[in-house]
């Protein structure tokens, strides 16, 4: 966030600059409210933050690099299940289990991405969709390891060594830190040489190639970064809930994360967090509608897509003069 501050801070104050901060202020307000009020809003926000981790990754691949993947849930599942199995069946501690989980997911992302990223457009999308479905099937069928639909329970909470974060507020605080770090990283990537290469690939693969940008390599890099975030989210989920079953990483996760990305603002830095929070809390604000809850939620989503087609964060971006970026590469 400090880099954002540095890049958006103008020489003189303008009221429009506070608008640029609105997504952050709203996000901080929601998280702060949850922290103070306790109760199940904490649970909602904790899940939202885990999803934010997932969507930050998705945004790098889809927003920055303009590719499509319907299969990021596969990496969440790989890492989540690795975490779960290592900590329960083999009694590992949480941190190394997460590390191995994420590493395994990244390895899979490399093996999958290397051939498939040469595919274009809808071939890539279909390929990634297949990866998600296959992973789901494996988590159901490989029951000697995954326990199938029965799921794995008794997964220890997040923690370092003997210190375990079990309280709701503790988990919330830890996730806030993780999301801030990742958001900061994504902001840095956006303005780095790597990020410029992503945006060049997004703009026009041929134009990027003609400038000497190795398109396939950067697509792969983007895919792997994105998979790493998805994997981390998967592991965080299983340690926070203490349970994992195939449904957790099903198609539901893909739909939810896409909604978050588009509502929040694809390609923006604040979008994933804002989108994850809004989409997680929105249905709940309509809980009083009972059977019409989904209808109300759907209606609001449609309105959002009509009036903020580039997402909420982009809505505030519009009023902001272009970022000042240093001259050196």
């Amino acid at each position: 966030m400090t880099s954002l501050l540095a890049t958006t801070l103008p020489s003189r104050f303008r009221w429009t600059d506070t608008l640029a901060w609105l997504p952050w202020i709203i996000s901080a307000g929601i998280v702060g409210y949850a922290f103070l009020s306790g109760g199940y809003v904490v649970t909602l926000v904790v899940f939202a933050l885990i999803y934010a981790v997932f969507v930050i990754g998705l945004n790098i691949f889809m927003g920055f690099t303009n590719q499509v993947s319907f299969g990021q849930n596969a990496f969440a599942a790989i890492s989540g299940y690795t975490s779960a199995v290592l900590t329960t069946a083999y009694e590992w501690t949480t941190l190394p289990a997460i590390a191995v989980g994420v590493a395994l997911a990244v390895l899979c992302a490399f093996l999958i991405g290397y051939p498939t990223l040469r595919l274009k457009g809808h071939y890539l999308a279909m390929g990634t969709l297949a990866i998600g479905l296959i992973t789901y099937e494996i988590s159901v069928e490989w029951s000697s390891v995954t326990q199938g639909y029965m799921g794995i329970s008794g997964i220890p909470p997040l923690g370092i060594g003997a210190y375990e974060v079990t309280s709701d507020r503790g988990q919330l605080a830890l996730l806030v830190v993780i999301v801030l770090i990742l958001t900061f990283m994504s902001a840095r990537i956006r303005t780095s040489r790597l990020g410029r290469a992503f945006f060049a690939v997004a703009g026009s693969e041929d134009a990027a190639r003609a400038l000497g940008v190795d398109v396939a390599r950067y697509k792969l890099a983007s895919f792997i970064l994105s998979a790493a975030c998805a994997a981390l989210a998967g592991s965080l989920f299983v340690h926070v809930v203490g349970f994992v079953s195939p449904e957790v990483f099903g198609l539901h996760m893909v739909i939810l994360s896409f909604t978050m990305l588009y509502v929040g603002g694809i390609g923006t830095v604040a979008g994933p967090l804002l989108g994850a929070l809004i989409v997680s809390l929105l249905p709940d604000t309509f809980r009083a509608f009972k059977d019409y809850q989904d209808l109300a939620y759907g209606a609001v989503l449609i309105l959002l897509l009509i009036y903020a087609p580039r997402g909420l964060a982009a809505l505030f971006d519009r009023y902001v003069p272009a970022k000042k970026v240093g001259g050196a590469p």
Binding site: G39, F47, M150, G151, S153, V241, F243
Partner: peptide
């Protein structure tokens, strides 16, 4: 998990008679 938490903390539920989604009941058990 979310609705269990909601009913516990917001509604003050003292007992659950929950349905057949076993994964959901397992996830909320802790």
């Amino acid at each position: 998990v979310t609705v269990y938490r909601k009913m516990l903390s917001s509604d003050g539920v003292g007992m659950f008679i929950s349905g057949c989604v076993s994964a959901g009941n397992f996830a909320a058990a802790p």
